[in-house]
Structure formats: C-alpha cells, structure tokens
Write a protein that binds this DNA or RNA. Sequence first.
DNA 1: GGAAGCCTATCGATCGGTCGATAGATTCGT
DNA 2: ACGAATCTATCGACCGATCGATAGGCTTCC
Lengths: 218, 218
Amino acid sequence: MVVNTTGERIHRVAVELFARKGFHGVGIRELAQHAQLSSASLYHYMGTKEALLAEIMHDCLRRLVSAGREAVASVDDPTERLGRLVALHVLAHAERAQETAVVDNEVNSLSPALRRSVVAARDSYERLWADAIADGRHSGAFRADPDGVARRGLLEMCSGVARWYSSTGPMPLDDLAREYALLALRALGPTEPAAPDVDVCREIVLTTWGAVGSADFA
Amino acid sequence: MVVNTTGERIHRVAVELFARKGFHGVGIRELAQHAQLSSASLYHYMGTKEALLAEIMHDCLRRLVSAGREAVASVDDPTERLGRLVALHVLAHAERAQETAVVDNEVNSLSPALRRSVVAARDSYERLWADAIADGRHSGAFRADPDGVARRGLLEMCSGVARWYSSTGPMPLDDLAREYALLALRALGPTEPAAPDVDVCREIVLTTWGAVGSADFA
DNA sequence: GGAAGCCTATCGATCGGTCGATAGATTCGT
DNA sequence: ACGAATCTATCGACCGATCGATAGGCTTCC
C-alpha cells in the first residue's frame, strides 16, 4: 500500500506531463497547477526541475533492473531468459508507458553529471539482455550477434510499445508480450522457439509497480 | 548540387539543434546564432519556429516516401520488398540520423493541425511496410501479423538506429542494413530468408538525400 | 528607386527559481 | 502544564533571464 503524499503526487503529475509534452515543454507553473500547489511550494519537495526528472528516471530504472533480475534469476536456458526479458520489457512499457517513455526520450535533457548516472543505471539493465544474448550465442541457441546489433535492435523494438500501446486495443497484453518474445527469439535463434513464461513476468510487473494505474486516490 | 542559401543554412542548423536538444530545448536566439544571423532575420526566411519544425518533418518524410516507393517499385517478391524497406530505413536513419530523429521524436511538439498533416505523411510511408507485410502474409512468405504488431515493432527497431549509430563503429553500414533486414525477415518468415539488395537501397539513399554529410560549405 | 537581406531595439509573456512571511502542528525546557 | 522554540507546509510577490515574435530603419544590388 503506497501512501499518497504531496511528494508522490508531484512525482506522478510530473511523469504524466513530461511524457506528454517533454521536459522542456512543461513549466514549473503548469506542474504546480496540476499538483494543486503553488510553484514556490514545489521547491519544498524537490531540488530543481532537473533533479525531479532524474529522480523519475532513476525510480523507473531501479524497478526495471529489479524486475529484470527477478525474471531471469535461477533460469539457465538463454532462450527462456531472453524471452522473459522481452516479455517483461513489453509489459512494463505497456502498463507504465509514461515513466518508460520519459526514460527513453529525455536522457538528453539532463546535464552531463546527472545524465551519466542515469545512463549507468540504464547500462546495468541492458547488461541483463547482453548476458542472456551472449550465453545463448555460446550455447548455440542464438546466432552470432555482431557488436550488439541485435540487442540494440530488440530493445528499441520493445521500447516502442510505450509509444503506441493502448489497453483498449484488440490484442490482450499478455498475447502482445508473447508475440514480441517470439518475434525476438525467431530473429535471433536458428530454431523455432518456445514462448517464455509470460505469467511469471506479469506477476513480477505487478509486485514491482503495484496495481495498474495505481490511481488509489480521488 | 545543392546551393547553400541562407534558408537552407537555417534549415540545416535547425535540424541539428532540434535533434540534439529537442524542439522546446532550442530558442530562436540560439538558432540564429548558429545560422550566423540575428533572431529577427530568421523571420525573413521562416514563418514561425513551429512552421520550421513542420517543414523539416515534411521534407524528411517526403524523401522517405519517395525513396521507399522507388525501392519497392517493380519488385513483386514480398520478402525482397520488405527487406529493401528495412535496409533503406536503416540506411536513412544512420546517414540522416538528425532529420529522422526529429520526425520520430518531435511529433508531439506540433499543434494539432500541423501534427495531423505530419502524421498523414508518416502513415503514407508506413503503408509501404503494411502492404509488403500483407502481401507476404497472403503468399505464405510471412507468418500472421496480428493487428500490425510486427510492422510497429520492426519500424521501431529500425528507427532506433538513429539513436546510436556512429559511422566510426566497427560494422560497415551496408552490413548493418543487411543484418537488420535479416533480423526482420527471420522474425516474420517461416523460412531462412535471403538478404535483400542493399546496393540498390544505398543508391536510392544517395540520390534522395545527396552526398553523406552534405557539409558542402565552410 | 525599389526589392531583398539584415540589423538594433523592443515587445509582452513566460521561464526556473528564491524571497520573506504565515498558519498550524510538534517538541522542548522548566 | 504551559509557554517558547522549532518544524512543516504553504503562500504571494518578485528576481533576472529568456521566450517567440514584431517594428522600423539601414545597406546592397539590380
């Protein structure tokens, strides 16, 4: 159960506005208005506007890394591991499209110091993918992946889900995640792959981010 | 041979700045300074800052549509058609990363009217992909693509190239384009695909955009 | 002499951020 | 127990800087 403090309300509003209009497209007055606060009061809860952005990104990346590690823990088969990472990534980017879009799109809005720390966090997430792909290559389950081309391509493919997914679309989200995993595994593997365990990924997403929407206040 | 007028210089500078810092992250004074002009003189060549952005996007999309149509004209085999579209897309997003990144990232910075026209142009480009995929599905060359999931996924995968490609990287660009095409075709097709004709795509990119870099001024 | 190209100066609005103040709750000292 | 001191949350007013855009006047070149 997450409490609904003023700080969290600001965080939530900022995620929504930054995702929709971009960091530079949102002023602090607009932020304050949506959070039902004066612009001065905002600074009681945050450092600067940029620090708020960095906090949003770190929060999202921390969850992604945690969820990713949990999804592949104690799974040896590289195909199942990569498949779970893909499914998890798709689920997260569909259900938390705003946070993840901010992470993907606004890295360049950060000053060098903050950007470095965010990029480092993102790298530690992508290393999960790189490890799974490398293991699969060595075991023969995957084709050669020269210079991480496949890793980058698949990550971009899955992140794109945040740009267009709508829960009112025709395809159930679990099916979408499975479809993406199969697309990814077919692109890499020489053999027809089995679908990963999407249910466990779904469960991890649930415990990592809480209930969908999480609008547990009026 | 492209002349180097002031208007084109502004266009070029705007592409670079919008790509690097985002539309809202660039002021007209910064734009003017990089174009070696006063901010007032800018308005001798453009309507508004937003109109300049829309012009950049339409220019890029016009070239993409033209190049895409040329690449698939008189090609019947759906596998070769989609492979060429992928290769072309990758080549364009690598060599003209700035324009294409602006198109991909700044659509939401446009007011509704201008956005509609840009989205319409983008749709007519994506229709080339949709047609190739639909033909391949009907001929049995591709698996079912429920609700355009594969089209969206592959497009995002290829567009991502603009975010990370560097000409100093270890892999020659033609190889990268071929690798992406094979990734895409393997993801879709039930059989091991042949690589598309990357050379012809390369030639089309050259005639559509002119020489790489096109920094034909001091 | 007139259009094209470019300038300085300026506009009102908004930017991110800080100021001192205040009302109310909590903690502390005696 | 009770006043003093402190803390929390909030505000309106304001800062210098920058925003996108305009007005009007010089050159330069045909």
